[in-house]
Design a protein around this nucleic acid. Structure first.
Lengths: 348, 348
DNA sequence: AACAAATATGTAATCGTTTACATAGAGGGC
DNA sequence: GCCCTCTATGTAAACGATTACATATTTGTT
């Protein structure tokens, strides 16, 4: 593997000069510059980033700690992060962890010397507390807000989004609106529940415990909860699932039970995953700009990395948008399946 | 940031001893070992991996070069890679590129000194040729087979999978079976086309150009192709889409046109993405074990990395499996939406 | 003509590790 | 008591870059 020394020898120059040419630091004669650049190219010299980061104490790499989550959310958030990072010349070191304190801590240490900063996605409410340990590198906390500590955080406008959806249902005349909740330990889930209750109160409706069903963001949970709701004497006329996966599970339960959506029961989800529009009926949801979330997290992190000294900690929130389709029967329903997709879906 | 020197000073020992303790190399007294380990833990010492990799010339990191692809495929393959890598104590450095020669090459160099090996997912047939440059580190080529060079490759059993699906359609009595193709520059697409033709020939049917429609793996393309097929005087009785996204697009075109599936036209896809089973009717497809694909790629790469000297190049292929649901009306149709999902879908 | 300033280049220290080699004391066999 | 072999530790040289400082050459000012 060719090193800077090899190039220097070949060019009859010192390594310092080569380094200066390649980094554009310090003065060099035009001729020397050309020679060395040409030589370096021909010899396929690429600086060893480990060596470089050792002396500059910069790695130009950002760490990403993600819980073991699946599907569209994962890929979208990485896309947002990577494109932003790449635009700034940074790489992404990705690590999946279980969202538990110990694992996160282990992963954090493993990143030492490899990254200039870390984005931690920690929807598990417990996990954030340990993160209070003063980290030596900048950290951005995603989908969770750490209590009174020293890192940036970025969250989804969960409460507002849920409130919008439920208010939408209320406007359609629904009074008995059920919710299929997420895990009580999940930050997003608790916020969405808060928004649900808020919207009901806004409408003068008293939240009712029997209409709040446990769930865990899985489609199986959505299915089970829907079955339970159907068994009630006083059925709800609308169901708000705290995420689309559960909404889809619920839809399939309703279909099996011969319940018409939205005529007998309206269904709304949260996330607006791509398949939402392909459901039958197409699922109304709360759109979350996932890639944007990732992009913004990296931007915040990069600011922390480059302005380490003066970087005021921030708490931001990306906004959501209500997307009305046929599953809630709203008047302004979106047209049936769109012909063009913003983004191409590539199979393999 | 605490270094090995700090620990050594605190322990009144030389850095060599500390290094030996922490790496379990060389002999140390039990007492010294305990002392240093305890101290290192308390001081939160973590070795600087850059420095370490400089001297050992190992990074314990694998690079992953992915085209800008979306959705489930991306996250699943990363999952498979990461879990395997983690099990071997390796990290993943992920970079998205456009699948073009220049970009791939740039990304490859940027990885120099950062990784011990690279997995390159290069479905674009052109891109593989440049990869022939003798890379200094091991490379595993995914979803593409490089011509007569020196890297491992791992592909999907595309041809066989497509053949199985089409044969299944033939067995149901179909004779006029259309295909919605992928890009002719895409390796998976061309192989699936090959499988389609093979199955037809096996059944004594002559492939017909008018039944082979262009597509690009996007749902929009599937929709458009289906519309075209419906406009033919002699409509096909079955459609095989080269991936699920196009199959879903086709389904929605058929629904809009009031064509019953599978009674009037049967539809089969490829990939078996998670939403396939939620379609109406549930979509028959060819299951691709995506996570496994990623896992196997990393395994091959790790073998190349650790047995650098004697590592015979291999060409492997992961097998697919036909999944019959209602969209092809096969007799042994899978039961309606499964109640439990192997993997939990977490929203955020 | 002399000297300062600017330009081009080289020398060597440094970053945080690992590790080959050196050293020193302890134990054992004769 | 001598030598050999362990065991435990220290010393210092790498690894491949960057960069402060030194040096030599050129240019410009007076």
């Amino acid at each position: 593997m060719v090193t800077i020394k090899d190039v220097a020898r070949e060019a009859n120059m010192s390594v310092a000069t080569v380094s200066r040419v390649l980094n554009g630091s310090g003065p060099v004669s035009e001729e020397t510059g050309r020679l060395i650049r040409e030589l370096a190219g021909r010899m396929r010299y690429v600086p060893h980033s480990g060596a470089r980061s050792l002396i500059t104490s910069k790695t130009e790499t950002l760490g990403v700690l993600l819980p073991d989550l699946y599907g569209e959310f994962f890929s979208e958030i990485i896309r947002g992060m990577d494109s932003t990072a790449q635009r700034h010349g940074f790489h992404l070191l990705i690590s999946r962890t279980y969202a538990d304190k110990h694992e996160i801590e282990t992963a954090m240490r493993a990143m030492r010397g490899r990254v200039d900063g870390v984005v931690v996605l920690s929807p598990d409410l417990d996990a954030d507390s340990l993160l209070n340990l003063p980290s030596t590198i900048p950290v951005v906390l995603l989908c969770s807000v750490a209590k009174g500590n020293e890192m940036d955080s970025l969250t989804i406008q969960n409460c507002r989004g849920a409130r919008d959806m439920v208010t939408h249902l209320v406007k359609l005349g629904h009074r008995r609106i059920a919710i299929i909740k997420g895990s009580p330990r999940n930050y997003d889930a608790t916020e969405r529940l808060r928004g649900y209750r808020m919207a009901l109160r806004d409408a003068g409706i008293t939240p009712e415990a029997s209409l709040e069903r446990e769930g865990d963001f899985s489609d199986a949970a959505g299915y089970a909860a829907a079955i339970e709701l159907l068994a009630m004497q006083k059925r709800p006329t609308a169901i708000f699932a705290a995420n689309d996966a559960m909404a889809i599970g619920a839809l399939s339960a309703l279909r099996e039970s011969g319940v018409r959506v939205p005529e007998e029961i309206a269904v709304g989800g949260f996330d607006d995953i791509p398949l939402a529009r392909y459901m039958d009926p197409p699922l109304s949801s709360v759109h979350v700009p996932i890639a944007e979330l990732g992009a913004r997290a990296v931007e915040m992190l990069l600011h922390g990395v480059t302005h380490k000294n003066d970087h005021p900690r921030r708490r931001e929130r990306v906004s959501t948008e209500l997307v009305i389709r046929r599953s809630t029967g709203g008047e302004s329903a979106e047209r049936p399946p769109p012909r063009t997709l913003k983004r191409e879906t590539v199979s393999t």
